[in-house]
Design a protein around this nucleic acid. Structure first.
Length: 872
RNA sequence: GCCAGUGUGGUGGAAUUGGUAGACACACGGGAUUCAAAAUCCCGCGCCCUUAAAAGCGUGUCGGUUCGAGUCCGACCACUGGUACCA
């Protein structure tokens, strides 16, 4: 270590984090402090962090996430609750396959090594975790129950197989994840990625769309932004399915459907667009080589929504026309690359006058644009589509109708002629759970020789993933292993399904399994699951706001309907923490940016403390700041938590992480901030050791306290009040820490001689230690004993506010003139408004501003502000 | 593109319900202690004018509501997360 200590301090008075932390951790381990069992007589609190993917070692995001969780868990424990704080591993996934190819090892080996290392790191950070409940999702004893549950869903008809699109790498002959497609090319092969249609398994989440939407209203302790995102994602809309007849029959096709939420614009339809894979489009293409070529070219695109929405929209006239269901007019039918066959009916109606994307498409291909809605401010459609709702024009008998009436009348007319009906639609699509990958839970299905599928019988579960394999990056070892695929059922040959589950399956129910992970006879033990669930506080990254949280909510409802749990929702209170950022630095070399780790950058500041020069300490090269960005490999700006733990100890890392910013915001890493946190812990250590030297036996007698002593007592209890609110309700640990720092800064203002002063100081210090305990538990564990307390701080309750200590006799009131601060006065608490008014008007500086002006009115906010409003 | 956020001193951030903008820290400057340094302690620290006090300006930009706006409303700019196969 590079830090010095006061020379006059004896050995045990030095703050040595290594000794203090090892001692505390050994104590918790030997006492089994954090192992819990369900006790129906005690109030429970289930505190859960999103479990980590075992990628190798902990990163700062993990440290932040698990520190927040641990602080809340320890705080709730001090409230006397039975706190469950478990941990496990989200162990299946793509990175293990990539690492396996790179290192020529099996994904299982890599994963288990990572788990062992990361577990040791979590222990060294002093998190109060009940490790007896630990599991990894790649354990057959875990995914067995997931497979069992899937077969239940299969029996209930909630599971089905259908064709859907994937990114296909034609060189590696493999399916690519969206993140493996870079600029339209496969990341490994560099081949142009194509869209391919394959058969996949789906779970009917859309059957639960209404529940998932409506139950959001019951989640009072979820951030509003997350609920809004989920509502928009589910995207419930009421519209009309409209049938367009073809003017001529194409093979067996006489018509097709489109869905619209704007039937009021139906008279403005000037063309219709089919997906390139629409059966009618494919049929027309057999006789139209030009169209066939267009459709073929459209294959070279990706499946991601962002890509679909931003790519150039291309289309082609099929030459076929459809009949407008209201007017009987002929409407041209186009094929477009921006309509996907997977979603909805694979066809859309285009109203370029009132939809911006249609407008741009119509301009590009010189298609007619019609205005059928009148603008409120009289605007036309010369430069852009008019998307607001309004009164219908150019719509024949519908002219003059507003949106609601037009919707009703037009839908009735369509219904009468059997050309449409009102329909509720969701943006949400069914959950595709098939992955054409190896490192996942095998989907428990037998494919029958004569076609069709059945669920693997319960007595044959789990379908075990072979782990002794080699990966080459081309084909999944599961698909390649012919003997694994073979199976026999009732004397018939059947084949195991070779697709594995989406890893969101495992992360959708792990929180429930933690309540009873030792039960190998059933998926969940109802007694324990219903005692602990729902999770009282769930904590994880905002990046999971939609997918993970929606799938987990869905799974919970599925488990409820299977009779496994009683609650409707899995997570009562949700906290989404922000990302961890750090400064990045680079220099230019041969036109390329070479990124240098922040640990190698030396900052030179001017006399105002502003950075004026950055030097690479290894090469002496001058560096440029690349800004503060998310810690990443590509910018070489990651900070390894282990290095900081080794240098300063876990308490310093925990303190800095909690102090740097409130949990929901992004957190910026700063080496100076870390050493500041360490400095504070040394100060805390010294304050306690100075106090015990004062050797005082007196207890506080409130009747004999002087003003100074009363002030410190009030500060102590104000701080307890604030910190309790910050921990329990607001989850703002940064302001809680700041409040304790303020309290400690007040202590030196009280003398060290009078016994009552020493007692009041002692009260402030003891409470500060208790309040800091959830954040920096190792040092508090030690200092609590140093203060002479006989029992461990783990057994002590959270401090209580003495309301009498909070009473004040006077308060400072700000005087404003026309909203600007012009002075301050001290008034006794309970003064009447007239007294306050006259005192305010007499204030010398205020007089300067109101002299010769007419006072129009005076606004009084009790104990805070007097605002004198004068004419200008 | 679409959905959801964020923007405050040199820096991280505070201001919880529309009521003193900058708490608490970091950095920096000055001082004490020291043979010297580290560590520690004390003082100062939004900008501008100034010996000082007072005034003026100031929460991404422009506009609005209000006695009073960082906070509410409208428009815009920049950045971030998600966008269904990264987890």
């Amino acid at each position: 270590m590079t830090h010095g200590y006061s020379i006059d301090m004896s050995t045990d008075e030095k703050y040595n984090p290594k000794i203090v932390e090892e001692e505390a951790q050994a104590f918790w381990e030997s006492e089994q402090t954090f192992s819990v069992t369900h006790q129906s007589d005690k109030e429970k609190f289930y505190c859960l962090a999103m479990f980590p993917y075992p990628s190798g070692k902990l990163h700062m995001g993990h440290v932040r996430n698990y520190t927040i969780t641990d602080v809340i868990a320890r705080y709730q424990r001090m409230q006397g609750k039975n706190v469950l704080h478990p941990m496990g591993w989200d162990a299946f996934g793509l990175p293990a396959e990539n690492a396996a190819i790179e290192n020529h090892t099996a994904p299982a080996k890599w994963t288990h090594e990572n788990i062992a290392y990361m577990k040791s790191q979590l222990k060294s950070l002093g998190f109060g975790i009940d490790w007896s409940r630990e599991f990894a999702t790649c354990d057959p004893s875990y995914y067995k129950w997931e497979q069992w549950f899937f077969t239940k869903l299969f029996d209930k008809g909630l599971v089905y197989k259908k064709t859907s699109s994937v990114n296909w790498d034609p060189i590696d002959e493999t399916v690519l994840a969206n993140e493996q497609v870079i600029d339209g090319k496969g990341w490994r092969s560099g081949a142009n990625v194509e869209i391919k249609e394959i058969d996949q398994w789906f779970i009917r989440i859309t059957d639960y769309a209404d529940q998932l939407l409506n139950d959001l209203d019951d989640l009072e302790q979820w951030p509003e932004q997350v609920k809004t995102m989920q509502r928009n994602w589910i995207g419930k809309s009421v519209g009309i399915n409209i049938i367009f007849d073809l003017s001529q029959t194409i093979r067996e096709f006489t018509h097709f459907d489109v869905y619209t939420t704007r039937p009021d614009t139906l008279m403005g339809v000037t063309y219709l667009t089919l997906a390139t894979q629409h059966p009618i489009a494919l049929e027309i293409a057999t006789l139209n080589p030009e169209l066939a070529e267009f459709i073929d070219n459209c294959k070279s695109q990706q499946v991601s929504e962002a890509e679909m929405a931003t790519m150039e929209k291309l289309g082609m006239d099929t030459g076929v026309v459809a009949i407008h269901p209201l007017t009987g007019d002929k409407v041209p039918v186009w094929v477009g690359n921006y309509v996907l066959m997977d979603y909805g009916s694979g066809a859309v109606m285009a109203v370029p006058g009132h939809d911006q994307r249609d407008y741009e498409f119509a301009k590009k291909y010189s298609l007619p644009i019609m205005q059928v809605i009148q603008s409120l401010n009289g605007g036309g459609i010369e430069t852009a589509a008019l998307t607001e709702k309004g009164v219908l024009i150019n719509s024949g008998k519908y002219n003059g109708l507003d949106f609601d009436t037009a919707f009703k009348v037009i839908s009735e007319d369509l219904k009468r002629s059997n050309h449409g009906s009102v329909a509720t639609n969701y943006r949400l699509r069914d959950w595709g759970v098939s992955r054409q990958r190896y490192w996942g839970a095998p989907i428990p299905i037998y494919n029958l020789a004569e076609g069709g599928e059945i669920a693997v019988p319960i007595d044959r579960l789990p379908v075990i993933l072979p782990t002794n394999i080699k990966m080459d990056g081309v084909q999944s070892p599961l698909k390649a292993d012919k003997s694994w695929r073979k199976a026999e059922l009732n004397g018939q040959f059947v084949e195991h399904e070779t697709d594995t589950f989406d890893t969101f399956m495992e992360s959708s129910w792990y929180y429930a399994r933690f309540t009873c992970s030792d039960d190998h006879t059933q998926m969940l033990d109802p007694e324990r699951a219903n005692y602990w669930l729902p999770v009282d506080q769930y904590i994880g990254g905002i990046e999971h706001a939609i997918l993970h949280l929606l799938y987990a909510r869905f799974f919970h409802k599925l488990m409820r309907d299977e009779g496994l749990v009683k609650s409707n929702e899995p997570f009562k209170k949700l906290l989404c923490q922000g990302m961890v950022l750090s400064e990045s630095y680079y220099y230019q070399s041969e036109g390329k940016k070479i990124w240098v780790s922040p640990s190698k950058a030396e900052l030179h500041r001017d006399k105002y403390g502003k950075v004026e020069k950055i030097i690479d300490i290894e090469t002496g090269v001058e560096l440029t700041s690349g800004g503060i960005t998310k810690m990443s490999k590509s910018k070489n700006n990651g900070v390894d938590p282990q290095l900081i733990i080794d240098k300063y100890g876990s308490d310093t890392v925990r303190l800095f992480t909690m102090f740097a910013s409130p949990p929901e915001q992004t957190m910026e890493w700063s080496d100076e901030g870390v050493s500041g946190a360490f400095k504070f812990l040394k100060k805390l250590w010294r304050i306690v050791h100075d106090q015990i030297k004062l050797s005082n036996e007196d207890v506080i007698d409130v009747s004999i306290l002087n003003d100074q002593q009363k002030y410190l007592r009030r500060k102590t209890h104000e701080t307890i009040k604030k910190v309790s609110d910050d921990f329990g309700r607001r989850n703002t640990f940064n302001t809680a820490i700041a409040a304790v720092m303020e309290l400690l800064n007040e202590i030196p203002k009280v003398d060290t001689i009078s016994p009552q002063s020493i007692a009041v100081r002692g009260e402030a210090i003891s409470n500060a230690i208790l309040m800091l305990n959830p954040i920096v538990p190792h040092i508090c564990n030690k200092l609590w004993l140093t203060l002479g307390n006989p029992t461990s701080i783990c057994e002590i309750d959270w401090p209580k506010v003495d309301e009498l200590a909070l009473l004040k006799t006077s308060s400072i009131i700000v005087i404003q003139v026309n909203g600007k601060v012009r002075g301050k006065i001290e008034v006794s608490v309970g003064s009447n408004d007239d007294t306050v008014k006259s005192q305010a008007l007499e204030h010398e500086n205020v007089q300067k501003f109101i002299a010769g002006k007419k006072v129009k009115k005076i606004i009084i906010i009790p104990n805070k502000i007097v605002n004198i409003v004068i004419s200008k």
